[in-house]
Computed example of a mutant assay.
Amino acid sequence: MRSALVVGTGLIGTSVALALVTRGVQVYLSDVDRTAELTAASLGAGLAEEPAGPVDLAVVAVPPGAVGGVLAGLQARGAARHYTDVASAKSGPERDAVALGCDPVRYVGGHPLAGGERPGALGARADLFERRSWVLTPRPEAGTETLNTVLELVALCRAVPVVMEAAAHDRVLALLSHAPYVVARLLAERVRRAGRDTAELSGPGTGDLTWTAAADPELWGEVLRANAAEVADAVDELAADLREAAAGLRGLAAPGEPGRPDAPGMSGREDGGMMRGLLGEWNGDGTGVFGGRGGPPVRSRTLAVPIGDRPGELARLFADVAGAGANVTDVRLEHPEAGRTALVHLAVAEAQAGALERALAAREWPVG
């Protein structure tokens, strides 16, 4: 990749631009807010001007509800050879792009799972995405060259590509990111209402739970609107868990305490059993729940899959990998010499490698 256009110079867009500039890519910046655009340029993120001709890749870094319109406008004027976005919801932008007649062959949706406490270009960092997951949601029509280009973007940002369907992405992010933001805002508001004396006693535990509440509420309003149904489901499920936890805690209250249900003769053993029921699924140290980047290393195995030089072949492979339910932790493309077949190297957890190999073979992929 030699050139890129980044549309939207907030935290994520400017961080993408900084990462690309660091790797020698010529970056052009565009934003409806000229001040934000010039701020990003002053940080060394690129040139605040229109490119003279089509760039290799346009990165749409705007709120989810605006992705479709921006993408349609960019494609209409031939701004780039390939296109992607970095919105934190995928199904809505994908539907909008289709409805607006965007070319699906030259577009692959994406979402880097990274962020920061300080919004805007001034919070951007070139290393923001290093070792972080970057979800790609290619439609079946996506062209091989476009997928290669977007994978190159992920590699240049030192991130780890993860391929998912758009709907699956939205369900996962509702649980991992969007619902937690709602909870953080609610908890922060509870602390605020409790008064200054209470807030001044808060420590790092409260801070860890509520720091995301300080994020830009306007931006988060766009995110929640774009994934509202999935977030509502996640919040409903969490609310049910909290009601169950509250009932269990009331059962632990000492006899005669306000809020304790009548439970004559409850023994300490029964109290302990109730507590184990409340916390039994938690293993104490977080491993097995938060086993992502930075967690204990997982043994992996690499499968080499040759692909033909036909439109959509790479997208078809990724769709079959996603359908097999395998967690691919890294992807590397071996570009062929003239007349030779390209190889896609898929790194997958050792425990899943055999099942993925069989699933791909069943789909007539000659796995090496």
Rank of each mutant, 00 (worst) to 15 (best):
E189G: 11
D262R: 14
S177I: 02
A245C: 10
F129Q: 03
A126L: 07
A36S: 12
A72W: 00
A166R: 08
R193C: 03
C102N: 09
T39C: 07
E189V: 12
A41I: 06
S42F: 02
E350V: 09
P180I: 02
T329N: 12
A245R: 12
M275K: 05
S3V: 12
R171N: 07
D208V: 11
D208P: 09
W282P: 01
V16P: 07
A214N: 12
A263G: 10
L153R: 01
T14K: 08
R243H: 12
P258G: 03
M275T: 10
R250L: 04
G339S: 08
T341N: 05
P297G: 04
P264E: 02
V331I: 15
V172M: 13
A166F: 06
R23Y: 02
V60A: 08
S15E: 09
H82C: 14
P366M: 06
D233W: 10
S3G: 14
V154P: 09
F129H: 01
V163G: 04
E165Y: 12
P119Y: 03
A4K: 01
A89N: 05
D170F: 03
L201R: 11
W211H: 12
A184F: 10
G339Y: 14
R276A: 15
R225D: 08
R118D: 14
W134G: 03
A155I: 09
A338R: 13
L20K: 09
G207P: 08
R332K: 06
L57A: 00
A80P: 07
A247I: 04
D309G: 10
A349S: 09
G44S: 12
L29W: 00
T206P: 07
T9F: 00
Y28F: 11
R358D: 15
G10I: 11
D241T: 13
L18A: 05
D33C: 14
L5A: 05
R77A: 01
L201W: 10
G53R: 11
P63C: 03
R363T: 02
V59P: 10
L74E: 07
A89M: 05
E200I: 06
G44M: 13
V223F: 12
R193A: 05
A174H: 02
E37F: 01
T341C: 09
V344P: 03
D103M: 09
A353S: 13
G46L: 01
V183C: 10
L303D: 13
V6Y: 00
L209G: 14
A121V: 03
F318Y: 05
L100T: 09
L151M: 03
L153M: 09
D236R: 15
V305F: 03
S91L: 12
D241C: 15
G205S: 14
A215C: 04
L29S: 00
R139D: 07
P336R: 15
L224Y: 02
E281Y: 06
G291D: 14
P63I: 03
A121N: 03
R193M: 07
L122W: 07
F290V: 08
G221M: 02
V328H: 01
D236S: 14
V55T: 08
D236E: 15
P264L: 04
G325S: 07
G323K: 06
V348G: 09
A319Q: 12
S133H: 10
G265K: 08
R196F: 07
V305A: 06
V328A: 11
E94W: 07
V367Y: 06
A246K: 08
A362E: 14
V59S: 08
V67R: 00
L303V: 14
E141K: 04
G203A: 15
G288L: 11
L360R: 10
A214S: 13
G195K: 11
P264R: 05
